[in-house]
Protein backbone atom coordinates (compact mmCIF):
# COMPACT_ATOMS: atom_id res chain seq x y z
CA UNK A 1 0.00 0.00 0.00
CA UNK A 2 1.31 3.44 -0.92
CA UNK A 3 2.43 5.62 1.97
CA UNK A 4 0.16 8.55 2.61
CA UNK A 5 1.73 12.04 2.92
CA UNK A 6 -0.11 15.15 4.14
CA UNK A 7 1.20 18.49 2.85
CA UNK A 8 -0.03 21.68 4.56
CA UNK A 9 0.82 25.10 3.10
CA UNK A 10 -1.18 28.23 2.32
CA UNK A 11 0.81 28.72 -0.89
CA UNK A 12 -1.02 26.71 -3.59
CA UNK A 13 2.14 26.56 -5.75
CA UNK A 14 4.04 24.81 -2.95
CA UNK A 15 1.39 22.17 -2.26
CA UNK A 16 1.07 21.67 -6.03
CA UNK A 17 4.77 21.14 -6.70
CA UNK A 18 5.27 18.89 -3.66
CA UNK A 19 2.18 16.82 -4.55
CA UNK A 20 3.41 16.33 -8.10
CA UNK A 21 6.87 15.27 -6.97
CA UNK A 22 5.61 12.81 -4.34
CA UNK A 23 2.85 11.36 -6.51
CA UNK A 24 5.44 10.61 -9.19
CA UNK A 25 7.26 8.63 -6.47
CA UNK A 26 4.09 6.65 -5.87
CA UNK A 27 2.92 8.36 -2.68
CA UNK A 28 -0.67 9.16 -1.93
CA UNK A 29 -0.85 12.89 -1.18
CA UNK A 30 -3.42 14.78 0.88
CA UNK A 31 -3.39 18.61 0.66
CA UNK A 32 -4.37 21.13 3.37
CA UNK A 33 -4.44 24.91 2.80
CA UNK A 34 -4.09 25.91 6.47
CA UNK A 35 -3.20 24.53 9.90
CA UNK A 36 -6.76 23.82 10.97
CA UNK A 37 -7.52 21.84 7.83
CA UNK A 38 -4.23 19.98 8.24
CA UNK A 39 -5.14 19.07 11.83
CA UNK A 40 -8.57 17.80 10.81
CA UNK A 41 -7.18 15.80 7.87
CA UNK A 42 -4.38 14.35 9.99
CA UNK A 43 -6.86 13.18 12.64
CA UNK A 44 -9.22 11.72 10.05
CA UNK A 45 -6.85 10.27 7.47
CA UNK A 46 -3.92 9.20 9.69
CA UNK A 47 -1.13 9.97 7.17
CA UNK A 48 2.27 8.25 7.40
CA UNK A 49 4.19 11.50 6.99
CA UNK A 50 3.36 15.18 7.36
CA UNK A 51 5.02 18.13 5.60
CA UNK A 52 3.88 21.49 7.01
CA UNK A 53 4.56 25.18 6.59
CA UNK A 54 5.20 27.22 9.74
CA UNK A 55 3.11 30.36 9.16
CA UNK A 56 -0.41 29.45 8.08
CA UNK A 57 -3.86 30.95 8.60
CA UNK A 58 -6.14 29.61 11.35
CA UNK A 59 -3.48 27.39 12.97
CA UNK A 60 0.30 27.71 12.83
CA UNK A 61 2.61 24.84 11.96
CA UNK A 62 3.98 24.86 15.52
CA UNK A 63 0.53 24.49 17.07
CA UNK A 64 -0.30 21.75 14.59
CA UNK A 65 2.81 19.80 15.62
CA UNK A 66 2.10 20.18 19.32
CA UNK A 67 -1.55 19.18 19.01
CA UNK A 68 -0.84 16.18 16.80
CA UNK A 69 1.90 14.98 19.12
CA UNK A 70 -0.52 15.15 22.02
CA UNK A 71 -3.58 13.71 20.31
CA UNK A 72 -2.36 11.10 17.83
CA UNK A 73 -2.08 7.61 19.30
CA UNK A 74 0.93 6.83 17.13
CA UNK A 75 3.47 9.56 16.40
CA UNK A 76 3.81 10.67 12.78
CA UNK A 77 7.10 12.04 11.46
CA UNK A 78 6.72 15.73 10.61
CA UNK A 79 8.91 17.83 8.33
CA UNK A 80 8.66 21.60 8.72
CA UNK A 81 9.00 23.39 5.38
CA UNK A 82 9.46 27.08 6.13
CA UNK A 83 10.88 30.33 4.82
CA UNK A 84 11.78 31.30 8.38
CA UNK A 85 14.35 28.56 8.92
CA UNK A 86 17.15 30.58 10.46
CA UNK A 87 14.80 32.64 12.60
CA UNK A 88 13.57 29.59 14.47
CA UNK A 89 15.04 28.91 17.86
CA UNK A 90 16.97 25.60 17.62
CA UNK A 91 16.15 24.85 21.26
CA UNK A 92 12.43 25.26 20.55
CA UNK A 93 12.71 23.06 17.45
CA UNK A 94 14.51 20.40 19.49
CA UNK A 95 11.61 20.31 21.94
CA UNK A 96 9.02 19.84 19.20
CA UNK A 97 8.12 16.48 17.73
CA UNK A 98 9.65 17.45 14.38
CA UNK A 99 11.80 15.12 12.30
CA UNK A 100 13.51 17.83 10.28
CA UNK A 101 13.30 21.46 9.19
CA UNK A 102 13.75 22.38 5.54
CA UNK A 103 13.99 25.99 4.47
CA UNK A 104 12.40 27.61 1.44
CA UNK A 105 13.48 27.91 -1.33
CA UNK A 106 13.84 24.13 -1.27
CA UNK A 107 14.69 21.28 -3.61
CA UNK A 108 11.69 18.98 -4.30
CA UNK A 109 14.24 16.25 -5.01
CA UNK A 110 15.81 16.59 -1.54
CA UNK A 111 12.39 16.75 0.04
CA UNK A 112 11.36 13.53 -1.69
CA UNK A 113 14.61 11.85 -0.55
CA UNK A 114 14.02 12.95 3.05
CA UNK A 115 10.47 11.55 3.01
CA UNK A 116 11.61 8.25 1.49
CA UNK A 117 14.46 7.94 3.98
CA UNK A 118 12.25 8.68 6.97
CA UNK A 119 9.62 6.14 5.93
CA UNK A 120 12.31 3.55 5.25
CA UNK A 121 13.79 4.14 8.74
CA UNK A 122 10.37 3.71 10.27
CA UNK A 123 9.76 0.42 8.51
CA UNK A 124 13.18 -0.94 9.36
CA UNK A 125 13.03 -3.10 12.48
Amino acid sequence: MAARVLIADDEPCITDVVSRKLRKEGFEVIVAADGQEAYELAMAERPDFIITDLQMPRMSGLELCVRLAAELAEPVPILMLTAKGFELDPAEIARLPILAVMTKPFSPRELRDKVCQALQDLRAP
Partner: peptide, 20 residues
Protein backbone atom coordinates in the same frame (compact mmCIF):
# COMPACT_ATOMS: atom_id res chain seq x y z
CA UNK B 1 12.54 38.35 2.80
CA UNK B 2 9.89 35.92 3.96
CA UNK B 3 7.41 37.21 1.40
CA UNK B 4 10.01 37.04 -1.35
CA UNK B 5 10.95 33.50 -0.47
CA UNK B 6 7.44 32.26 -1.30
CA UNK B 7 7.53 33.01 -5.05
CA UNK B 8 11.23 32.20 -5.10
CA UNK B 9 10.52 28.77 -3.59
CA UNK B 10 7.97 28.06 -6.32
CA UNK B 11 10.32 29.25 -9.06
CA UNK B 12 13.14 27.06 -7.77
CA UNK B 13 10.93 23.99 -7.21
CA UNK B 14 9.25 24.06 -10.63
CA UNK B 15 12.57 24.76 -12.36
CA UNK B 16 14.13 21.78 -10.64
CA UNK B 17 11.15 19.64 -11.65
CA UNK B 18 11.75 20.65 -15.29
CA UNK B 19 15.48 19.97 -15.00
CA UNK B 20 14.82 16.56 -13.40
Amino acid sequence: SHEMKAPLASIKAYTEMLVD
